[in-house]
């Protein structure tokens, strides 16, 4: 199975948090996800995201999934 180190899918969690003036710790408490797991997502090291996680983030940050995830062609 080939493993990809760089994904074309970028997670824009940092920007969203900055816009809303929220810290990663605060978000992790609100959505009930560990800080470690949320860091994995933020740094783009996650391999997959659960719908339940996506739902919780969108609910707390009042955004759409498209605001959180972005496809970048050049990073491949």
């Amino acid at each position: 199975m080939p493993t990809e180190d760089t994904s074309a899918i970028a997670v824009r969690l940092d920007e969203l948090l900055q816009d809303r003036g929220m810290t990663l710790t605060e978000l992790s408490e609100r959505i009930g996800l560990t800080l470690a797991n949320l860091s994995i997502l933020k740094t783009g090291k996650a391999k997959a995201i659960r719908f339940s996680t996506l739902e919780a983030i969108c609910r707390e940050l009042e955004c759409q999934p498209g605001d959180l995830l972005e496809y970048r062609e050049d990073s491949q």
């Binding site: 994995i40 996650a46 391999k47 997959a48 659960r50 996680t53």
Partner: peptide, 11 residues
Amino acid sequence: AAMREDLEGTV
């Protein structure tokens, strides 16, 4: 092992 790796990367 492959499944576990996938699961560990799932948030």
